[in-house]
């Protein structure tokens, strides 16, 4: 049986790949523009769009079933030193897929990792987390407070 990614904590690479998958093309273009010259690389598998079948579980925890498909795009690049960069994300953005694969490759290089974490992954992760919190705070404003209704002789 495969490990359950929902309960396993993420490795550093899983974390940055997740941040890259959730970033927009604009985010990645801006990040790359700010980095200056990029290392040379070859596209091993050009960005390709396909589908992934999304599985659910009956009742949330029971028998697996297929909900329906989603579009996804993947890409593989190889840096000069042989390091392979991969990207996988929902959607059909091929340009984003290639940039994300390149960044995944660079993030594995000790020479580039620190700067990329500081200037790209860190800020994007923070931005994604804060957006998530904003959404949750708006939902929280609609939380029903029954307590005030029954206060008193309830």
């Amino acid at each position: 049986m495969t490990v359950n990614p929902h309960t396993e904590s993420k490795t550093p690479r899983q974390h940055w790949m997740s941040v890259l998958a959730r970033a927009s093309l604009k985010d990645l273009e801006q990040a790359i523009a700010s980095l200056g010259p990029m290392p040379a690389y070859d596209v091993m598998k050009p960005a390709e769009t396909g589908t992934i079948m999304l599985e659910g579980r009956a009742g949330g925890a029971g028998r697996r079933f297929n909900i329906g498909e989603a579009t996804m795009t993947r890409c593989v690049v190889r840096l000069k030193d042989g390091t392979m960069g991969f990207s996988y994300a929902l959607g059909r953005d091929k340009r984003k897929a290639q940039l994300a694969a390149l960044l995944d490759g660079m993030l594995q290089l000790p020479t580039h990792a620190a700067i990329l974490h500081n200037s790209v992954i860190g800020p994007l992760a923070e931005q994604q987390a804060s957006k998530k919190i904003d959404v949750s705070r708006k939902a929280a404003a609609t939380k029903v407070d029954f307590f005030t209704l029954v206060r008193g002789d309830g």
């Binding site: 929902h6 390709e48 992934i52 079948m53 659910g56």
Partner: peptide
Amino acid sequence: TLPRFGSSVPLDTAA
């Protein structure tokens, strides 16, 4: 018209 890359890990709606 699209290739199928595979199936997801079952989605966790509790999360």
